[in-house]
Design a protein around this nucleic acid. Structure first.
Length: 474
DNA sequence: TGAAATGTTGGGGCG
DNA sequence: ACGCCCCAACATTTC
């Protein structure tokens, strides 16, 4: 007689290369479930772009599971044991989620189930290397990316092989009260939610399509092309990866089938940065909310809600920054080069706390991923592991001239200044008045005056960070 | 996965 | 032919 297994889905919303699902299929009858816990912000912030994606991704997964996915709303710690007992499950399987809070809670759930005599097991569905398998010779965790990757990961056990989607799933027939997907209310009632999803195909098939696109058109030339926001040299896999519609193992395996090149190597190292982010969160409990470098605890971030709002709305008067922030709001995505520029602007030129930026990103990004987002913000702010030094301050104008020389990106998202000649597009505040008049643009009316003077705000930040350095060294 | 300031070099214009 | 200046181009250092 076949044994009933509950498969608890989280951020592994796929049927291929899903170790927990595969294991359950081997054991017999499968009851796939999803539990929405709105207090678990490690997974998704309520009402965010990210939760809109989650809704569609769950819909897609449910279709792959013949509509047999059951939905619940609440605390998994309470729901899982109750369910297991209600349906007399022999097994409960899930793929691990590596943020400290979840690791702790999930361990508790596992013990509780085992005490009930249920076989509870977790699997690795989302990291190429388990965080605890990669350590320095003395057993302590790496804090610098390059040795983490080159020595730690490369000398560790190779990433596991991928699993095919189960050919056939025998779904358990059980009487069980559950919710509908819509009842989870993942999609806030505002027009923005449908706008933001245009241009994306959510779900496992969408992930495959994005990968195919990238391999056909973007991977060749990735290393250099990835810096140019108007070029198609990025994969746009991030939301798919964030929700586990594709696993890093599947991508890694596909890359190994490509002819080795600097482009392939670089894309692999970007996947490794994702690993490093999860690794840091796993090993350093407070990484998501506290400065990794404790010296920064004494730093006096400015309080300026008006400036924060203008940054969020893409109304800073600095075109590349506004273009990025508007891309984020309109599409739920921002090109990586531009993420660094807007983050540098917020933390250095505006001197606002990196956590404010991280929060906004988590609200707006469809690909919001707790580990990647927090580690990257700390990196830019200078307080993170292997971080950019405090004096590394991006000049948004120089960055525009280097990476958006023709102005395509700025013109797409800041159309009100698109008539400006290339020379002044990235710095309308330096355009001579006759040129502004010619194109009919008045700063302060048609487009904002710059929120801060780039030169002055740069030196203000340098002074503040230098003072911090001095204060903590003595 | 910086930018700006400062230093160095070498070609060309010019007296 | 020579020294001088200018300045672009590149290299180094400093923040």
């Amino acid at each position: 007689m076949s044994e009933l297994s509950i498969v608890w889905f989280r951020r592994d919303l796929r049927v291929a290369d899903n170790p927990a699902l595969t294991k359950a299929v081997e054991m017999g009858g499968v009851l796939p479930i999803y539990i929405y816990d709105e207090t678990d912000t490690d997974q998704s912030a309520k009402g965010s772009a990210n939760s809109v994606w989650l809704h569609q991704s769950l819909k897609s997964l449910n279709a792959s599971l013949d509509g047999k996915l059951r939905f619940f709303n609440g605390d998994p710690e309470e729901i899982l044991p109750r369910l297991a007992s209600e349906v007399s499950a022999k097994h409960v399987f899930w793929n691990r989620f590596y943020t400290p809070h979840r690791v702790t809670v999930d361990e508790g759930i596992k013990s509780a189930l085992q005490e009930m005599g249920v076989d509870a097991k977790s699997f690795n569905g989302s990291l190429l290397w388990e965080p605890w398998q990669v350590t320095k010779a003395d057993g302590s965790p790496y804090k610098v990316f390059t040795p983490f990757y080159r020595k730690g990961c490369m000398n560790a056990q190779r990433p596991r092989a991928t699993l095919p989607a189960p050919e056939q799933v025998d779904f358990a027939e059980v009487e069980l009260a559950s919710q509908t997907l819509d009842a989870l209310q993942l999609v806030p009632n505002m027009p923005w939610t449908s706008e933001v999803m245009k241009g994306w195909t959510v779900g496992e098939a969408g992930a495959r399509a994005a990968w195919g696109n990238f391999v056909d058109g973007g991977l060749d030339g990735y290393k250099k092309g990835r810096d140019f926001p108007s070029k198609a040299h990025v994969s746009r896999l991030s939301p798919h990866l964030a929700f586990g519609e594709v696993s890093p193992h599947q991508i890694w395996a596909a890359l190994e089938h490509q002819t080795d090149s600097e482009d392939v190597a670089h894309f692999k190292s970007e996947l490794a940065w994702r690993e490093f982010s999860y690794y840091l969160l796993f090993h350093f409990d407070e990484f998501a909310t506290q400065n990794f470098n404790a010296k920064f605890d004494r730093f006096q971030w400015r309080t300026d809600n008006e400036a924060l709002l203008k940054w969020q709305q893409g109304q800073t008067g600095i075109p590349i920054v506004d273009a990025g922030m508007r891309e984020l709001w309109q599409t739920g995505y921002m090109h990586n080069r531009v993420r660094m520029i807007v983050a540098s602007f917020l933390t250095k030129n505006l001197m606002l706390d990196w956590r404010l930026g991280a929060d906004w990103f988590e609200n707006c990004l469809v690909d919001a991923d707790r580990a990647n987002n927090r580690a990257s913000w700390q990196w830019v702010a200078g307080c993170g592991a292997d971080a950019a030094p405090y004096f590394r301050i991006f000049n948004p104008v120089t960055q525009s001239e280097k990476f958006d020389a023709a102005g395509d990106y700025i013109r797409q998202y800041v159309p009100e200044i698109s008539d400006l000649p290339d020379k002044y597009l990235a710095k309308p505040f330096e355009a001579p008045s006759n040129i502004l008049r010619q194109v009919g643009i008045q700063l302060g009316r048609d487009y904002p005056q710059p929120l801060v003077d780039l030169k002055k705000s740069r030196s203000r930040a340098l002074d503040a960070f230098a003072a911090l350095k001095e204060a903590t060294e003595s």
